[in-house]
Computed example of a mutant assay.
Amino acid sequence: MKKVIVMVALVMMGMFAYATNDGAKVSQTGKVANSGEVIAMNKAMFINNVFDFQQKAAAWKYKGTKPAIIDLYADWCGPCRQTAPIMKELAKEYAGKIVIYKVNVDKEKELAALFNATSIPLFVYIPLNGEPQMMRGAADKATFKRAIDEFLLK
């Protein structure tokens, strides 16, 4: 009976992971494959792919294999809707080089609090090594490209 329950739970978790990442490919290790798309992220994906903030770790340690941007947004936010197409374009342009995630602050309140997202949009730039940097507010594509090229890919 326990095996049946475990199998059902695993299938349900897999379906949930697929539904919450807009179809982004997730490997058997739980890592997100970079598909050139903006990936919707929930708390479980953040813990698995970015940083396990629930551990008693003393320092930030990024888990990813490519630099990342996290776009904290809300559906009702005008500037967030303005930057969403830019993020999609950048995900395609930088496919294989960076990963772009999006986090809905209304659905993922714990992640919003983690980054102190008191105003949105909020963009978190995560290099492979070093501390993440945040950029508040909307910007044009050239500004995002400059940040990617000069901070994430330098």
Rank of each mutant, 00 (worst) to 15 (best):
G36N: 07
C77H: 00
V6Y: 11
A44T: 13
G64Y: 02
V4C: 13
A74F: 03
I126G: 01
K107N: 10
L152D: 04
K43S: 09
G64I: 01
I148D: 07
N42T: 02
D52R: 08
V103S: 04
I120T: 09
K154Y: 07
I148K: 05
A95C: 13
E93Q: 08
G14M: 00
K61F: 07
A112Y: 03
T118W: 00
S35D: 15
A95S: 15
K141Q: 08
G78H: 11
G64L: 06
A9R: 10
T29D: 15
M13R: 11
I69C: 01
K25R: 15
P79D: 02
T65R: 06
K25V: 15
A40W: 04
A17F: 00
N49F: 07
N116C: 01
K43C: 01
N129G: 14
Y62P: 02
W60D: 11
V124S: 01
M134E: 12
K61S: 14
F53K: 10
E108G: 02
Y62W: 09
W76L: 09
D52W: 08
V99M: 14
K61M: 12
N34L: 08
I86C: 09
Y62N: 02
N21I: 05
V105Q: 03
T65D: 11
M45F: 01
Q28W: 14
T83V: 14
G23Y: 08
R136N: 02
Y125C: 00
A9D: 11
R81A: 05
N21C: 12
Y18Q: 13
T65K: 12
P85K: 00
A147C: 07
K92E: 15
A139N: 10
K102M: 01
T20R: 04
P79W: 06
A19L: 13
N49I: 05
F115Q: 10
Q55F: 09
A142R: 10
G30L: 06
C77Y: 07
V11E: 01
S27M: 14
I120S: 00
K97R: 13
T143E: 10
G78Y: 12
P127D: 07
D149Y: 03
L153M: 09
I86L: 06
V105T: 02
N48H: 10
A112L: 07
Q55L: 13
A24Q: 05
C77T: 02
V11F: 12
N49Q: 11
K61H: 15
E150G: 13
W60V: 06
M7E: 15
M134S: 14
F115L: 04
G23E: 09
K63L: 11
I47E: 01
Y101N: 02
S35M: 15
A33D: 15
L90S: 05
A139V: 04
I5W: 12
K88E: 14
W76T: 11
Q54F: 10
E150R: 14
A117Y: 04
T143N: 10
F151K: 12
L122K: 06
A19W: 07
E89G: 04
